[in-house]
């Protein structure tokens, strides 16, 4: 059964230096507050995994938490480039960043294989692109039934996956709805998991399109209202598109970025201790 913890306790216990960490959420339900707690606790040498390393990973990369990035699209959705990501790749600032690059279809299937207890996934993908020349774990495989050549990618099994959801009950059963992305697969593929939620309730009322993660499949739940901001929680908040636009300017310059992190993340009363 999932333990109910504070955000600080959850990150301290579940996210360790050198871990492979997946923070998932496809535009919706991105666990920003948990990302900030990882920065505050000074985690280092992380392999960060995420289909769309958008602003949240720009912050973690710029803050020096990452050694390696496994991803399929690294941009600020609807706005442009991620400047901290680019600075790390192009100039090794604040540290060199190793890349393992995939397509969305490949990453999604890697989580599915991880959640399914399989060593790899098979798909029609990557064929003819330059990605397999640089990402050595994109391989081809012949179908044993038809002989057709397909693509294989290895399972993703993060040490820990962190997601945000709308609600949990006191037994740690987690409920999310709206765009649920790849969160279920990412949690089930991981050895440990932390879920931050908008609300803890006595009973989970069913909602159309919901995904429920049973408490016994989750390591810990933390009550973090607003924990997805500037992303959003369907039914609780709307996406703060103005922040994504503003991030372009904040992140372009190293000093402005560091000031922003110092003011908005490292100052503990901002979003620590909310549980």
């Amino acid at each position: 059964m999932a333990k109910l913890v504070s955000l600080a306790e959850g990150v301290a216990e579940l996210v360790r230096d050198g871990d492979t960490v997946a923070l998932e959420g496809f535009t919706h339900l991105i666990p920003f507050a948990a990302g900030h707690e990882i920065i505050r606790q000074g985690r280092r040498d992380l392999t960060l995994v995420r289909m769309t390393p958008d602003v949240i990973y720009d912050q973690l990369i710029g803050a020096g938490c990452a050694r390696r990035l496994v991803f399929s699209w690294g941009g600020n959705p609807g706005v442009g480039s991620l400047h901290r990501f680019r600075d790390a790749v192009q100039n090794a600032w604040p540290a060199p960043l190793e890349l393992e690059e995939h397509s969305h279809a490949g990453m999604a299937n890697r989580y599915v294989a991880g959640a399914s207890g399989l060593p790899f996934a098979v798909l029609r993908g990557y064929t003819g692109t330059d990605l397999p020349r640089h990402t050595t774990n994109i391989r081809s495989i012949d179908c044993p039934f038809t002989g057709e050549t397909l693509t294989a990618v290895p399972a993703l099994n993060p040490d820990v996956t962190v997601v945000h959801a709308q609600r949990a009950d006191r037994a740690g059963n987690v409920q999310m709805w709206g765009i649920t992305g790849v969160q279920k697969e990412a949690v089930l593929a991981a050895r440990r998991s932390l879920v931050t939620v908008e609300e803890i309730v006595d009973e989970l009322t069913p909602v159309a399109g919901q995904v429920v993660l049973p408490g016994w499949a989750v390591s810990a739940v933390a009550h973090v209202p607003g924990g997805a901001h500037p992303s959003y929680a369907h039914g609780y908040s709307v996406r703060d598109n103005a922040f994504y636009v503003a991030w372009d300017k904040i992140s372009r310059d190293r000093d402005t970025f560091q000031d922003w992190i110092a003011t908005h993340v490292r100052t503990p009363e901002r979003d620590g201790g909310r549980a």
Binding site: W73, G74, Q90, H102, S103, R124, G125, T129
Partner: peptide, 17 residues
């Protein structure tokens, strides 16, 4: 060591395929 690092593939390779 690229001159410009762009966002990457996203869904495009399989959309194109």
């Amino acid at each position: 060591g690229p001159k410009v690092r762009l966002p990457g593939a996203g869904g495009a390779p399989e959309i194109a395929a």
